[in-house]
Each structure stands twice: as C-alpha cells, then as structure tokens.
Design a protein around this nucleic acid. Structure first.
Length: 320
DNA sequence: ATAGGGTTAG
C-alpha cells in the first residue's frame, strides 16, 4: 500500500474505523490482516495497533500471524522491549499462544539491537522447554549464530553451530553461510575452509554466498592466490560469479591501485551479462578518484549515465 | 506477502 494512502487513512480516522468494521462485518478478516501488515510494513505501528484494538473491541479473533506482524513491527522499530512484553504478557492474556515465528521475530530483534547474548539465552530456554512450550527451529539457531558472529562472539557462535546436530537441527545452507562469513571476518580462514568442506561432505550444496565470503576474506588479507583458487573451485562447482563477486574483485584491485585490472574485470563482467550496480560504480570511481585518473572517471560516469538512462535503475547522485 | 546468510562508499 502506498504511503500516501496510509497517510490519508491516518488523517481520516473515521473512514478508517468504518473500513475496519466493514471488513469485520463481511467476515473478510483476511483483508483486515493485510491492512495491519501494510501498516507494519510502512512503519505506522500506531495505526496497526489501532486496527488491532478495533478487532479486540469488536470481539473478532485474529490469527497468530497478525500478532506476529505486530511483534515484527515493534522489533523493526527497535522496540524489542515492547515486543517481549507482547510475547510474554499480552499474548497469553489475550489467549494467544506465541509460536516459533513470534519467538524468532524476538530473537531477530534482540540480535539487531546487539543483544545476541539475550537472544542466545532465549534460544536455550526454548531448547530446554523453559515453560515456553515452543521449540526452536533451524532458523532460530541461524539468527543467533549470525548475531553472535556480528558482535564478535566468535567462540560462542562456533560452539552453538556445533551444538545443532545433537539438538536435532542439522545446519543448512544459511547456517553454513553465516558460519563461513563469520569465520572469514574473524580471519579464521582455515576454519572457514573446513566448514566449506564439511558442508560439501554433508551434501549441503553451497551457492555463491559462502564462496563470496571466502573470496572476500582472502582479498582482505591480500591473499590473491587463495582468492583465485576459490574462484576456480566455485566455477568448478558449476557456480557463476555474480555481481557481488565481481564487486569484491573490482574493489580489491582498486584498493591496491591497479585500476586498469579492475576495469578489465568490469568489462568482462558486462560481457558475461552481469549488470553492474551502484556498488560496482562506486568502487571503480573511488579507485579512479584516488589515483587522480580524472579522464577515466569522466568516461565511466558517462557510461554510467547512459546505463542509467537505458534501464532507469541507478541513481547517479550516489557518486556525486 | 510470517522468519535466516555475502560486496562498496561515508
């Protein structure tokens, strides 16, 4: 729903109220659900809760998914405390039972607020059936592992990753991707490589993401030979370099001052049908600017503007 | 369209 439409409804509380009541009266609760989701998506939690309040007063029971949308909305608005209150107090009061989506939204909210330790405790309580009557799933683990890595709690994250199989949750593609990325950022390249081998051995087929993490790790360490080895391994596995792979390589060559090579990677990327994005142009332009290669810069800007006019996608103001 | 992972610049 367009923001303007939401705002219009906000400024016309009466019409809004009538519309909600209409949805209820004709039994189209699904439409009302959609309305609440829209309010959450555009960050108008006030309206979402107003609609929810009307439901409650009208006596309609909504599906759990509606409450989960509200929980997610609170978390997106950095109001994890309120979201916790919703899950642990309000929902039971209203006769709703939080499900794994409710808890995962909370776990994600906690991690987003850099409280992955609390998220971990919540996960462990769920695992131990600490009165929540809801088991975690592989997604719960994935969120916490990623949060721990991003907060630098590498050991804890790695430990939790190893706990998963014993709890009945074999790591999946997303788990391995997070673990490999976290280990690469911690410069634990050997462990990251071992994790890639493990996922191949377990039959979890990698896509470009874990390879990109490894390539980025080696580029950051200045180990181009290793990065190229991974590129070959990736191609050998039938995977094509995507825009992110190319962006990392272009950025690497620009950063070590070899803009001509960065440009030839850019050209081969275009030849192979991969569309450069704003990041691509940013890296290359930054490289040219650092070298003072104003002519190259100007040419690339020209190319970029022509590209922009052709597909109407990029915003040139990103680099102005 | 109920949940999870990778790149740049500032």
């Amino acid at each position: 729903m367009a923001r303007s439409r939401v705002n219009m409804m906000a400024t016309n509380a009466c019409a809004f109220d009538i519309r909600i009541r209409c949805f209820c009266n004709v039994g189209r609760l699904d439409l009302a659900d959609i309305l609440i989701r829209c309010f959450c998506n555009v960050g108008r939690l006030d309206l979402a809760f107003a609609a929810f309040g009307l439901f409650l007063r009208t006596g309609w029971r909504v599906q759990n998914v509606v409450l989960n949308q509200l929980i997610k909305g609170l978390c997106d608005g950095k109001r994890t405390g309120d979201a916790m209150d919703m899950v642990f107090r309000r929902m039971p009061e209203l006769g709703y039972t939080p499900d794994v989506f409710s808890y995962n939204a909370l776990i994600k909210g906690l991690c987003a607020e850099k409280k992955s330790q609390e998220a971990l405790e919540l996960l462990l309580h769920m695992t131990a059936n600490g009165g929540y009557n809801c088991s975690p799933d592989v997604v719960s683990y994935n969120i916490v592992i990623d949060g721990l890595f991003k907060e630098g709690e590498v050991d804890k994250a790695y430990f939790l990753f190893h706990e998963m199989p014993g709890q009945g949750f074999p790591p999946d593609l997303v788990t391995y991707s997070s673990v490999i990325d976290g280990l690469c950022k911690a410069q634990a390249m050997d462990k990251a490589e071992a994790s890639l081998q493990q996922m191949l051995y377990k039959g979890v087929m990698p896509n470009t993401r874990p390879y990109n993490s490894l390539i980025h790790g080696y580029c950051s360490l200045g180990q181009l030979v290793e990065a190229v080895r991974l590129l070959k391994k990736m191609s050998g596995g039938g995977l094509q370099l995507n825009v992110v792979t190319y962006n990392m390589l272009i950025d690497y060559y620009c950063k070590i001052g070899r803009c001509a090579e960065a440009r030839s990677i850019f050209d081969s990327m275009v030849r192979r049908g991969q569309k450069p994005n704003a990041t691509t142009y940013c890296s290359l332009l930054h490289g040219y600017a650092t070298k003072g290669a104003l002519v190259d810069m100007h040419d690339l800007l020209d190319l970029m503007i022509r590209d922009e006019m052709r597909q109407n996608g990029l915003r040139p103001n990103l680099v102005s």
